[in-house]
Design a protein around this nucleic acid. Structure first.
Lengths: 192, 192
DNA sequence: TTTCTAAATGAATTTTTATTCACTTACCTT
DNA sequence: AAGGTAAGTGAATAAAAATTCATTTAGAAA
C-alpha cells in the first residue's frame, strides 16, 4: 500500500499561501492551487474535503507552526528595554521575511471562510505572549507606561506591521537607520 | 426620457462596501449586491459594465469622496503638538466610525481586482497630506524627530489603524482614557 | 514476483456565479 | 394625451469554478 505523504499536505498549504499573497482569497482557485503545488486537482481533495476545509486548515497551520519564536536571542537577564528591542526586532523581521503570514490573516478575518467557530484566537495570542510578558515586567518595574496592555500591544504591533508593509510595498530594504528610527519611536512612545 | 439616477450609482457602491466589510471581496456576489442595494441584478449592469469595473469604481469613489477632511478643527495658529493631536484624533475617529473604508483598502490591494494601473495612489496620498504637512512643519521647528517622513507617517498610521480595529473587534468603545494613552504613545514616540 | 490497497490523475460533471436580454415601466418632450 | 427613449426587471443563459470518479500508478505486504 502507498501511504499518504505527510509532506504533501503542507506542500499544498504553502502553495495556497503563496497564491493568496498574490491574488487574495478572492482569487484563489483550486485548479491554480493544484498547479502551483505541482499536483492534480483531485489530489487536493484527498488531503482536504473542500476549499473551506483547506483554508481553515491553513489558518490553523499558520497559527501553530509558522511564526518563529519571538524571544529568540532574548536573555532573562536583559533589561526591559533590550528585551523589548530584541522582541520587536524579531517581530519586524519575521513580518518582512514571511509577509505571507500577515497577508493571510488580514484576508482571512474578513472572508466568508472565517467563522467565530475558528476561535483558536486563544492559541493565536500565544504567539504574542512574549510581548505581553515583557510589557508586564516593564510596567512592574515602572519603566513602561501604565496603560492597558492590550492597547499597548496593539499600538506597538500596529507600528511594526505597517513598517513591515512599507518595505514590502516600496520594494526597498528596511535599513539599519529605518530600524533605529522605528525602535526610537516605539520605545519613546511606551517608556515612562 | 428617464434619466440615469446619479444617486443610484453610489447606492450600489455603498451596498458593495457594506457587503465587502462583512464577507470580504471573496464573498461578494452580484446577486447579493443587487439585493442589498435594493435593485435588480440587471440594474447593476446599467451602472457598471462588470464586476471588475464596479470594484475599481468603488476604489476611486472611496479615495475621492469617502474620507472626511483630516484637518477639520485644526487652526493654523495651533502649535505642532496640538495640530498633530487634532489630526490624529480625526484620523482615528474616521477609522472607527467608517471601518468599511479601511477594510476595503486592506482587501483590495491584495485582490485580483487591483492592478498597478490603478495608480491613483498619488491621489490617495492626498488624504494623508495633512499628516505629512504637520510632520514637515514639526521637523522644521525641531519639535519632531528628524526621521524620514514616510516612515514616520507609516508608524503613526499603523498605530492608529490598529487602535481603530481594536475597538471594532472587541466591540467596546474607545474611551477617553484609551485616546489619551494612544496620543501619549504617539507623541512621545515622534517628538524630539 | 505477484497481489493488493490507497494515492494520484485529470477529464467530465456539477455547482455556483456572472452576465445578458426580451420585456416592462417611468418620465420627458411635443 | 401620445410617443419616444432610456432605466429597471429578473428569468434565462453563459462562464467560471468546485468537486467527482473511473482509471492509472506506486509501493507495501505476501
Amino acid at each position: 500500500m502507498r501511504t499518504k505523504d505527510e509532506g504533501k499536505e503542507s506542500q499544498i498549504l504553502e502553495a495556497a499561501l503563496r497564491l493568496i499573497t498574490q491574488t487574495g482569497l478572492a482569487g484563489l482557485k483550486m485548479a491554480d492551487l493544484a498547479r502551483e503545488a505541482g499536483v492534480a486537482t483531485g489530489t487536493v481533495y484527498i488531503y482536504f474535503i473542500d476549499k473551506t476545509a483547506l483554508i481553515s486548515r491553513l489558518y490553523i497551520y499558520l497559527i501553530r507552526t509558522a511564526w518563529r519564536d519571538l524571544t529568540s536571542g532574548v536573555a532573562a537577564s536583559d533589561p526591559v528595554r533590550i528585551q523589548v528591542q530584541k522582541i520587536a526586532h524579531n517581530y519586524l523581521t519575521e513580518n518582512i521575511e514571511r509577509p505571507e503570514i500577515g497577508a493571510f490573516f488580514e484576508q482571512y478575518y474578513r472572508s466568508p471562510f472565517y467563522t467565530k467557530a475558528d476561535n483558536i484566537l486563544t492559541e493565536e495570542n500565544t504567539a504574542l505572549q512574549p510581548i505581553y510578558d515583557v510589557i508586564a515586567r516593564g510596567q512592574a518595574e515602572t519603566v513602561i507606561k501604565d496603560v492597558a496592555p492590550d492597547l499597548l500591544v496593539t499600538l506597538v504591533c500596529g507600528m511594526l506591521n505597517e513598517a513591515a508593509k512599507l518595505s514590502l510595498y516600496t520594494g526597498e530594504a528596511f535599513t539599519k537607520a529605518d530600524w533605529e528610527a522605528t525602535f526610537s519611536v516605539l520605545w519613546d512612545g511606551i517608556k515612562r
